[in-house]
């Protein structure tokens, strides 16, 4: 795909630990088109957040990313920190999982927002602060002008996440990386945050990579979904196809574990037996094989390739053949 905004190929993320090298993300490839919202779904420890950190150059000091991530034609993974600083906070921004700790407690909220504009766009502090207030207003912070002079501890969790969104979008980035931005918030606030994010991204034409374990959020927001397990893509499909006709056993299992309003109250929630794999050496076969109910002998021996089974629909399972 040549019209991709972001094109990731063979992305691996490994961590050096005292017990040896652990692979969190294993030779992953995906694309994000301009204006598209891509959801990356997976359980805890599936490596989904590390994908975003590797793109932003924010991996922990013992982490290492290899492969290629072309963003607007430039390989993010080959850049030095200084080169990355011309991309992150400029054309690519990120919002984080925990809004309570992700803002600097010692600086006024407005100044934290304005900082990016001063550094990257050469605005004066006065002009940048005015821009910041306008953006805070857009994420529906009431009384934005006086709120901008306050400190993060004077904001609620939901407000802080709106501040984070304002801070990320203030520089008008082409790509927004969102790392479980609603996980730490309660459900009604989650819904507001998603609305604001969706609305702004649409208005500003920003692409989003949205990492979450919440399928409800994905259904509301995303155009396309990647289901991740053990650092590998299990299935990739347009959102409506994935929700209506998932093919991979893990994707099916994941959807079955989601409670549905329409289901009878007596129906017990399905679970996927076993526990998510955590680190350790990569298995030779499919990472989901040990927990998969329909596994065959080949599953534990050979890694199934990611194959196309329909338009924009790919999956990695031995049981599913190539599209005719």
């Amino acid at each position: 795909m040549t019209d991709s905004l972001l094109s990731v190929r063979d992305l691996s993320v490994t961590f050096r630990l005292p017990e040896g090298e652990v692979t969190a993300v294993d030779r992953l490839g995906f694309d994000v088109a301009p204006g598209e919202v891509l959801g990356i779904v997976g359980e805890s420890g599936s490596g989904k957040s590390q994908i975003l950190f590797s793109l932003m150059g924010l991996l922990a000091p013992n982490g290492r990313a290899s492969g290629q991530a072309l963003f607007a034609g430039q390989d993010l993974l080959a850049m030095t920190d200084t080169e990355l600083d011309r991309v992150r906070g400029v054309s690519m921004a990120m919002i984080f999982q925990d809004p309570m700790t992700s803002l600097n407690p010692y600086k006024r909220v407005g100044d934290q927002l304005a900082e990016g504009l001063v550094v990257h766009k050469g605005l004066s502090w006065r002009a940048a602060r005015a821009e910041a207030v306008r953006m805070l207003d857009r994420v529906r912070i009431p009384d934005a002008a006086s709120r901008a002079r306050r400190y993060p501890h004077e904001f609620s969790g939901g407000m802080r996440q709106r501040v984070m969104i304002a801070m990320a979008l203030l520089v008008n980035p082409r790509l927004l990386l969102a790392d479980e931005p609603t996980t730490a918030l309660d459900v009604t606030i989650q819904s507001q945050i998603i609305d604001i994010l969706a609305e702004l991204a649409r208005d500003m034409g920003t692409s989003i990579v949205f990492v979450t374990h919440d399928l409800g959020v994905v259904a509301r927001l995303c155009d396309r979904v990647i289901v991740l397990y053990g650092g590998r893509i299990m299935e990739e499909a347009p959102a409506d196809i994935l929700f209506n006709a998932p093919r991979h056993p893990y994707a099916k299992g994941l959807l079955d574990t989601t409670p549905r309003i329409a289901a009878p109250l007596t129906r017990r929630l399905d679970i996927i037996p076993g526990t998510p794999r955590s680190g350790g050496a990569m298995l030779p076969g499919c990472p989901f094989a040990p927990r998969c109910a329909s596994r065959i002998a080949a599953c534990e021996a050979v890694q199934p390739p990611l194959i196309g089974i329909g338009p924009a629909h790919r999956t990695a399972c031995h049981l599913i053949g190539e599209a005719p």
Binding site: R86, A93, E115, G116
Partner: peptide, 26 residues
Amino acid sequence: RENYVRTARAKGIGRGRVIRDHALTG
């Protein structure tokens, strides 16, 4: 290692500013 220092790095404001304007106070 604080999250807000990571946020500052994500803003691409340069290592000097991250340290001087964000990490030093804490």
